[in-house]
Design a binder for these strands. Structure first.
Length: 271
DNA sequence: CGAACCTCCTGCGGGC
DNA sequence: TGCCCGCAGGAGGTTC
């Protein structure tokens, strides 16, 4: 699925088409997402969209009377299309724009979310209220991560993937950041030293920022708002590279399942 | 509280 | 060629 870089890439792509303009109609072709898309989704229509924000892996389209909350789940994408094109299978929700275009929410697995939020602060919504800091913000500090790791026996990889601790780090970038920081994914969080946690904070920031620059990572589904894939996949050091040589030291990359998720690391670079 | 496990859903690639 | 199985970028829920 889209992790933070893919969601940010999507945000940047759709913003110019939405900000300052009203959504003129919503077509729900299949309401069966993670939360059913209710009829009040139409309430978003008419008022100009004042901005598109990202919070973790959520997108928020604000108006001065309510907002749209969108999550892309595992297989979701938002594309800007000409209205005349035929809709594809799994184009579940269509946001009509003034002029000739529309935005299509496409999500084969239907793990995503499209919700209308009434007036009020979207960040107070239960789905957003208990999220941890943004990894690219100043609030994501070594001290914060250190406090989150204190006493925790869970593997460090699972801790950095916990959205209550820091948002946006999914399965790809967790493996990548740990490689960059030289830390084994399975290490108990409480056993990672302060200096190594400082390296990890920096590594998370660096890998996410570098991926955003490349338009994110496409493994299978992800496309940006123009329907194009992201190019960070070719820059991945470990994810999906089992048995291939480490890009730093040529040792074959290891693979194991950790907390039900595929995990990759270099046994030499990561200790 | 934390940790381990399960679940939602569709599509695809590998093995036979 | 076709069928079955396992696996996939998320995250909320249950159980102990």
């Amino acid at each position: 699925m889209p992790e933070l870089p893919e969601v940010e890439t999507t945000r940047r792509g759709i913003a110019p088409h939405l900000v300052g303009k009203p959504i003129t109609g919503v077509i729900v072709r299949d309401s069966r997402l993670r939360h059913p898309v209710s009829a009040d989704i139409e309430d978003i229509c008419g008022k100009p969209v004042t901005g598109i924000r990202r919070r973790g892996k959520y997108l928020i389209a604000d108006t001065d009377d309510g907002a749209l909350l969108i999550h892309l789940g595992m297989s979701g994408s938002l594309r800007v299309c000409e209205r005349t094109e035929d809709h594809r299978k799994h184009d579940h929700v269509i946001l009509c724009l003034p002029g000739t275009r529309e935005i299509r929410y496409h999500d084969p697995r239907r793990f995503g979310i499209v919700l209308h939020l009434p007036a009020g602060d979207p960040l107070d919504h239960p789905l957003l209220a208990s999220l941890g800091p943004e990894p690219l913000s100043d609030e994501f500090t070594t001290a914060h991560l250190k406090a989150a790791c204190k006493g925790r026996t869970a593997p460090i990889k699972q801790v950095i993937m916990d959205a209550g601790i820091v948002v946006g780090v999914g399965n790809i970038y967790a493996s990548e950041a740990l490689h960059r920081a030289g830390i084994r994914p399975r290490t108990a969080a409480r056993r990672v030293s302060g200096p190594r946690l400082a390296r990890l904070v920096a590594a998370i920031r660096e890998v996410l920022a570098a991926s955003i620059e490349q338009g994110g990572t496409t493994l299978r589904d992800f496309v940006n708002s123009d329907g194009q894939p992201g190019y960070f996949r070719q820059r991945l050091f470990v994810y999906g590279r089992a048995e291939e040589p480490c890009r730093s030291c040529s040792t074959p990359i290891r693979h194991a399942v950790l907390g039900q998720r595929a995990t990759y690391w270099c046994p030499v670079c990561q200790r």
